[in-house]
Simulated assay, not measured.
Amino acid sequence: MQTASTNICERLCSKSIHEISLLLNIPQSTVSGILTKWKKLGTTATQPQSGRPLKMIDRSQRMLKRTVRRSC
């Protein structure tokens, strides 16, 4: 049994970037970027960004900071 992604791939595998762009009505740069990502990483999922991760402050800490600021 073929899945939807297999069916789409079979239809688009032999097409050029321009033809895929016209068929899907999306920019050629988007098609090119997706194909490059697929060839390089083997996936189109969003990858984690480099750099320092954002510190997540939980709700109780925010409430405490707000209370301290108001009382000062």
Rank of each mutant, 00 (worst) to 15 (best):
M63H: 14
M56V: 14
Q28V: 00
T30Q: 06
S32Y: 02
G51S: 01
R59Q: 13
K37F: 07
L64K: 03
G33F: 05
Q61K: 10
Q49I: 09
P53Q: 05
C13L: 11
C13F: 15
V68L: 14
Q61I: 05
V31R: 00
R11K: 07
G42L: 02
D58A: 14
E10H: 12
K65N: 07
R59D: 13
T6E: 14
I26G: 01
N7R: 11
A4Q: 06
R62K: 10
L24M: 01
L12T: 01
S21I: 00
L24E: 00
K65G: 06
A4C: 04
R70N: 04
T36A: 10
T36V: 09
Q47M: 09
C13T: 10
R70P: 01
I34L: 09
R66L: 08
T67C: 13
T43H: 13
S50P: 12
S14K: 09
Q47P: 05
M56Q: 15
Q28R: 02
T44H: 10
Q2V: 04
G33H: 04
L54F: 14
P27C: 00
G51F: 03
I20R: 03
Q28K: 03
T6K: 10
N25T: 01
K39A: 12
Q2L: 04
C72Q: 11
T44W: 09
K40G: 04
I8W: 13
Q47L: 07
K40A: 05
C72P: 11
S60M: 13
L35T: 09
L22D: 14
R52S: 09
I17G: 00
T30Y: 04
M63E: 09
S5H: 08
N7M: 14
S5V: 08
L64R: 10
K39R: 06
P27M: 00
S14G: 11
Q47F: 05
R52A: 02
I34P: 04
P27R: 02
K15R: 06
R11V: 13
R66K: 15
R59K: 15
S16N: 07
V31T: 01
R66Q: 10
C9I: 14
G33L: 06
L54Y: 12
P48G: 08
Q61C: 07
T36P: 04
T30V: 00
L41Y: 15
I26F: 03
I20K: 02
R66W: 09
C72Y: 14
T3F: 02
N25F: 05
L64M: 10
Q2H: 02
R69E: 06
R69F: 13
H18V: 01
C72T: 08
R52H: 06
M63Q: 12
T46Q: 11
Q28H: 00
I20E: 03
T6H: 12
S71T: 06
P27A: 00
C13D: 11
K55D: 11
S29Q: 02
A45H: 15
S16W: 00
G33N: 10
L54I: 12
L22H: 09
A45L: 15
S29P: 00
T30D: 08
C72V: 12
L64E: 06
L24I: 01
I17Y: 11
C13W: 15
G33Y: 03
K40V: 10
N25S: 06
R69T: 07
